[in-house]
């Protein structure tokens, strides 16, 4: 039998999915074990126990100086910034993307400009943002917005423009105005795609967040990682990285569920 025709069974699928994770964990444990056997003070690949101790310190012990539980205050600060940035970017994308996708005049004005903006490397603007908007929350949120909004906007506009022309004409024969075409025909049909591209933008959004926090912040997940880097505290950095990854995975999952719940007609099988 050809390889392309061999499908994993129902029970085999989770096992196969777990394999790379197990392999990664094993590789880490072996590497860490070898290094620690060589030098018990090695900081590069800390043992699970050492990481567990640091998780205990960061997550469940109040900080001596401030009395905060650092992991949670960091998480709250970071998520605040991330979600504000994503929310603003989504709003901008909705307005500009719909204008762009529905109105030929708006498209003529906006499309080249948005295409140009989306090519500006956001990180190169970071110093400008810090100088003009200060070192507070605004500049970090602005960085995320600048990084994410143009891509969301272009994606939305393309999706809107790709709707069959027949549908728009059909809506006109059903007495729709331009506004109603946008709100009742185009908007609901681009929403699933907007959620999907938002999911794809979670990665870049975290990148911009951590970059901004690394340079200047008083708290936050990225700030903490870059702070303890000075002490080579891999036993804090690794759990933080895993935590950030888990947060991103959870958000991705939530968005997928929202999409499935709100837009059942857009599921691949077409089954509501």
């Amino acid at each position: 039998m050809r390889l392309i025709n061999i499908h994993p069974g129902k029970g085999g699928r989770p096992v196969l999915a777990a394999l790379p994770f197990v392999a990664l964990a094993l590789a880490y444990l072996i590497g860490s074990g070898l290094r620690l056997a060589d030098n018990p003070a090695d900081k590069l690949l800390p043992s699970l126990a050492a990481m567990g101790r640091m998780i205990e310190v960061m997550a469940f012990t109040p900080d001596k100086r401030t009395g905060d539980y650092l992991l949670w205050t960091d998480t709250a600060a970071s998520l605040m910034r991330l979600w504000s940035g994503l929310a603003i970017a989504t709003l901008i994308a909705l307005v500009l993307g719909l204008l762009n996708g529905v109105l030929p005049i708006a498209r003529a004005i906006l499309a080249p400009f948005v295409a140009f903006l989306s090519m500006v490397p956001p990180l190169a603007l970071l110093p400008v943002l810090f100088i003009t908007l200060g070192l507070g929350e605004v500049s970090k949120i602005a960085l995320i917005v600048i990084g994410v909004a143009p891509i969301l906007t272009r994606d939305l506009a393309m999706t809107a423009a790709a709707l069959p022309r027949e549908q728009i004409v059909k809506a006109e024969t059903l007495s729709a105005s331009s506004w109603l075409v946008a709100t009742r025909v185009v908007l609901p049909q681009v929403m699933p795609r907007l959620i999907d591209s938002l999911r794809l933008q979670l990665g870049p959004a975290f990148l911009f967040l951590i970059a901004a926090e690394a340079i200047s912040a008083e708290g936050g997940l990225g700030y903490r990682i870059f702070l303890v880097r000075r002490y080579l505290s891999m036993d804090i950095i690794f759990p933080y990285v895993i935590w950030i990854t888990l947060l991103a995975v959870a958000m991705d999952l939530c968005l997928r569920l929202i999409r499935r719940r709100l837009y059942p007609w857009a599921e691949p099988e077409g089954q509501a």
Binding site: E166, K170, T173, V185, P188, Y263, W265
Partner: peptide, 15 residues
């Protein structure tokens, strides 16, 4: 709205 249309495809709204 005085002129209705039915196409071969895309005549109804999938959402």
């Amino acid at each position: 709205p005085d002129r209705g249309v039915v196409y071969q495809r895309y005549s109804v709204f999938p959402h």
